[in-house]
């Protein structure tokens, strides 16, 4: 019998702890497939965050460290400095990365730390029961913004990909989504590219993945996917905010244009 599909080796057989309809599972799969396809499973070391993905160390079939809330980029820095030839990544949510861990992620990017960050943005604190995150949309109701997020009190949601893409140390920063098949395929390409650029030693790489939280958004899984498309993407546009591999091409074109003159 022909094998038409195999589970990626970089995931364990453990049952995922995520809620039904949550897209963490898809994102885990894309990360694991990328590691598998690049043939770097044996040298990959992952860092789990605090949040829904805290048990990521049970799911990724590689050496893993679990970090304090928001500190995954600092922990990954320690690992990467000891093992510069290994592939090191963090997997973080929006409360972890964009709130309590803002300093660690910004400085890891600023240093051009050769790690990859998978940033799962679902605009809410999932694990703790649906509190407001720095990424919560204006007017979005959460357990700590029961009247909807009020920008007068809480400011506007933070766009991390745009912010980090502006730093010189960042080699690749993209925002993707997994709300439909086409988006999933694009997300896969971005994640794999981030790992490729880390392996090439280009600098800090991050892929922000817009994700769902049907449980805390109070929606069924299909509604939640629709909400990503209709509410999140308009504020969090998909795209590539930094790509040194393209910059290099542009730079060489500039040089040849000058030479032609």
């Amino acid at each position: 019998m022909a094998v038409v599909f195999e589970k990626t080796k970089a995931l364990t057989d453990a049952t995922l702890s995520y809620c039904p309809g949550c897209t963490h599972g898809i994102i885990h799969r894309l990360v694991a497939e990328s590691i598998d396809e690049l043939g770097v499973m044996e040298k990959s070391i992952g860092v789990a965050p605090v949040g829904c993905a805290v048990f990521a160390y049970d799911f990724f079939n590689i050496d893993m460290q679990q970090a304090a809330h928001g500190r995954a980029p600092a922990v990954a820095t320690g690992i990467k400095r000891v093992h510069p030839n290994n592939v090191v990544f963090t997997y973080q949510g929006d409360g972890d990365l964009a709130s309590i861990g803002m300093a660690e992620i910004v400085h890891a990017a600023a240093r051009g730390e050769k790690i990859t960050t998978i940033f799962v943005n679902n605009a809410i604190y999932g694990m703790t029961g649906g509190q407001m995150a720095p990424t919560t949309l204006v007017g979005q109701v959460t357990t700590t913004s029961p009247y909807g997020r009020n920008p007068e009190l809480c400011g506007m949601p933070v766009r991390m990909a745009e912010m980090l893409g502006g730093l010189a140390g960042a080699a690749y920063v993209a925002r993707v989504s997994v709300h439909n098949v086409r988006a999933v395929n694009e997300a896969k390409r971005a994640i794999k590219k981030a790992f490729e650029l880390q392996i090439a030693g280009k600098g800090f790489t991050m892929v922000e993945v817009l994700s769902t939280c049907p449980t805390n958004w109070g929606m069924n899984p299909v509604e939640a996917l629709g909400w990503v498309e209709s509410n999140m993407i308009p504020y969090y546009p998909l795209g590539v905010f930094k790509d040194v591999s393209k910059d290099a091409v542009l730079a060489s074109k500039d040089v040849s244009a000058k030479e032609a003159n």
């Binding site: 600092a74 820095t77 000891v82 300093a103 660690e104 910004v106 400085h107």
Partner: peptide, 23 residues
């Protein structure tokens, strides 16, 4: 490797990562 961290909090978590990596 000497690394001046962005904060004491980051520094000790870098220590965590490096210690966990066997150094």
């Amino acid at each position: 490797t000497f690394l001046q961290a962005e904060s004491e909090v980051a520094a000790i978590n870098m220590v965590y990562g490096a210690a966990g990596a066997g150094a």
